[in-house]
Amino acid sequence: MKDQVAAHTDDPLRLDRQVCFPLYAATNLINRLYTPVLRSLGITYPQYLVLLVLWEEEPQTVGALGTRLFLDSGTLTPLLKRMESNGLLDRRRDSADERRVLITLTDKGRALREAALHVPGTMSRGYDTQGLEELRERVTALVAILAQHDGRERLEGGA
């Protein structure tokens, strides 16, 4: 009887009925595809994301980086420490507010931008650019919906 329920295509617990699974799978595949491209730059995918934000504007606070990348400080702080030890960025307390930590790029971190200019083109090579842009817009909208839901859950004391 249980096998018949699980085999039914309308079963809400089928893996292929979940929205979360293709997003999870896509994230894992994206990480795998970026890894060899970024390895030549000496950085990981999460480090690349931090650099993208800092190349747009610096300094950034740890909190602002976390908000932009949807990472909590427990995840972000070790990542930033590794990047600092690799000479890509500096972390220092904000003199105006000692509770805040400011992140700035080093010369090495700024120079890496030039070396990374090929990454977007390499990753999108062979794909329909209009289709990718439409997908990016749809996924961005989904992220906004999920972030709004996450914010409500936090305010209400939920998970």
Rank of each mutant, 00 (worst) to 15 (best):
T129A: 07
T61E: 01
R125N: 09
G131Y: 02
E84D: 15
T140C: 10
G63S: 08
L142R: 00
R113S: 11
R99P: 13
R92G: 14
K108G: 09
G63H: 05
L71A: 07
V139G: 03
E137K: 03
G42M: 05
L132A: 07
D90C: 14
T77I: 15
W55K: 03
D94C: 15
Y48K: 01
I103V: 15
T67C: 13
D97N: 15
H118L: 10
Y127R: 04
R68M: 12
D94H: 10
H118Y: 06
K108V: 08
T67S: 15
F70R: 13
S73M: 08
M123K: 04
L117P: 03
R138M: 08
Q47A: 13
M83Y: 01
L51W: 01
E56L: 13
S73D: 13
T75P: 10
R82F: 10
E98V: 15
T140S: 14
I103A: 02
E56M: 10
R125Q: 11
T35K: 14
P46Q: 02
L51P: 11
T44V: 07
T35S: 15
T35W: 07
R93K: 01
S85D: 09
L88A: 12
L51G: 07
L112Q: 01
N86T: 06
L105I: 07
E56F: 10
E57K: 15
E134Q: 09
G63Q: 05
V143F: 10
S40V: 14
W55L: 06
Y34W: 05
Y127M: 10
L88I: 11
T106S: 05
L49R: 04
L54E: 02
R136F: 10
L54A: 03
P120G: 01
L102K: 02
D128Y: 04
G42T: 06
K81P: 04
G131K: 01
G63E: 07
R110A: 12
L71I: 04
P59H: 01
T61Q: 01
L52S: 11
E56G: 15
L142F: 07
L41K: 00
R39P: 06
H118G: 12
T104H: 00
A141S: 12
R110G: 03
D72E: 14
P120S: 00
L142G: 07
L71H: 03
R100D: 09
Y48A: 13
R82I: 10
D72T: 12
L52G: 12
Q60L: 05
D72S: 13
T61R: 03
V139L: 11
R100Q: 11
A144P: 09
P46Y: 03
L88R: 04
R110M: 07
R138H: 09
R93V: 14
L49S: 11
L79N: 02
K108S: 15
G42Q: 06
T129Q: 06
L38H: 00
V101F: 04
Y45G: 00
R125V: 08
